[in-house]
Design a protein around this nucleic acid. Sequence first.
RNA 1: CGGGGCAUGGCGCAGUCUGGUAGCGCAUCUGCUUUGGGAGCAGAGGGUCGCAGGUUCAAAUCCUGCUGCCCCGACCA
Length: 574
Amino acid sequence: MRLSQYPINTVKETPSEAEVISHQLMLRAGMIRRVAAGIYSWLPLGLRTLRKVEAIVREEMNRAGAFELLMPAIQPAELWQESGRWTEYGPELLRLKDRHERNFVVGPTHEEVITDIARREIKSYRQLPVNFYQVQIKFRDEVRPRFGVMRAREFIMKDAYSFHADERSLAEGYAAMRQAYTRMFQRMGLDFRTVQADPGAIGGNASEEFQVLAASGEDAIAISDADDFAANVELAPALAPAAPRPPPTQPLERIPTPGAHTIEQLAALLKVPATRCLKTLIVDGSDGTPVALLLRGDHDLNAVKAQKLPAIANPLRMASAAAVHAATGCAPGSIGPVGLTGLRVYADHAALAMADFVCGANQHDVHYTGANWRRDMPEPAGADLRNVVAGDPSPSGNGQLQIVRGIEVGHIFQLGRKYSAAMNATVLDESGAAIPMLMGCYGIGVTRIVAAAIEQNHDQRGIIWPDPIAPFNVCLVPLNLQKSPRVRGLADALYAELSAAGIDVLYDDRDVRPGVKFADAELLGIPHRVVVGERGLDAGTLEYRHRRATDSEDFAQRGALEFLRSRLQCAQPA
RNA sequence: CGGGGCAUGGCGCAGUCUGGUAGCGCAUCUGCUUUGGGAGCAGAGGGUCGCAGGUUCAAAUCCUGCUGCCCCGACCA
């Protein structure tokens, strides 16, 4: 591609709307433009990378035996009413009416449509298993779209749905997708982890996320430093401390703590570490009566874990100030388990391991010091209620946990019968009985991958594309092109040769100063740069530099194609 | 949905408090010079100051309403 003819505008200044680096660089490099909140156009340069990502996804889905189809973006409300999600889904679901006042949705996902297809097309267990996928535009009316295409409202997703006659087949189909996903992300050159995830409201027995590691990621992931254990912090188990609880050594004392209503204020006032303070939270119970949750002061409540307790309302809600007062006789900030009666109490395992601790006295601005379980109050039921923190022992039994951040680019589920049962998608088994099919579903955020790749691969000057998803692999930079016929002759010839060899070359034949060409090549993130300058003309050399390298190297004009091929590695078809 | 903020040429911003002929940088166009790290000089084009009312001799500026967007929080397969 001749850059002089390519429609692209790079921008020096960072647009004020962009907060994260990938969004800034995608705008500056001219990959995307914003059309409305969370809605973007992909310009030709950005689309080249998007298509390369899609191509890898399709190749690996096809390799895994899945079949591509295409479902509509606009779906009739009837299907959503049938599955129950017309009322369950909430405001993220964009609903609209046609001219006949019929209800439709802009699909945020396609379980209903694919299940409808399956029940019409699949009649016998002999047609199973089968896996359908599509690459489609989805719409989720996010409350707060942000980070460019990373959390957009309209986005491109690869979604796949598998159908099975029995659990074993479902597990096999799931494993095949797990492997296909692993291959895809490896091929894209991304540093990612496969992590255990919360199946959430969808249910099912297995669910894993594929997380691209990046400091700006929205998800927290716990990984072991000694094996391959990785889980979303939402569900990573916090093991109970192994050491027995120390015996009490201090007397229980009431002390005034004016104005100290947070653990930080309390710890500062009493000059004790937060680990010696007990945090008491009051949440709504499933039957209307509040529930008290006790945590060590430095730990955070894990809502996903807590709302799985039957006594606690799901979803989890903090009790109102009035309910807290009614239950404890005190406002939040001085609540504690001593003398707390009339409501159920759960304590995190780490809280139960404390001795001689500080806790609220259920009287405004008063706390206890030297509090101890059993001696001063009943020992409550233990539960895993907290987020794991760095340094916790790994649930795998090996090593300690570290907390890293990730961008969720893929998620695979074993759905089970939720949709097939609701929508009556059955097949006849060997005995001729109608059984609902088992389903798996498997998503990949295609547009999000592009942003995630940039979050993970950039520097001060711009993007650094991994070769397999680079919009162009080689940037050919001739210097003094307009004045030097020798440079032009050499650069034209090299451009023709590389293009003929099937390499994606961006030929910067613009009449601009060298600094502009270098800066743009680096902003766009083209991995390999070849400079044709008068310096090397007489010596018969060209100049090569990888986008990550700090220095250039000379190489011979003769055999230039072979030299570059050796540097391109995965840019060539296998 | 709660809180905070912004809206002035394609982009980034000043001007608003204290009303008086709309400005700067980048980008764009023309000419000359320059050509190994985002060039210099000279010139040019481009803005109903988000929208609608109101106050005033006069509104980007003051008042009212609306819309869009950004940030924090809450929410979220």
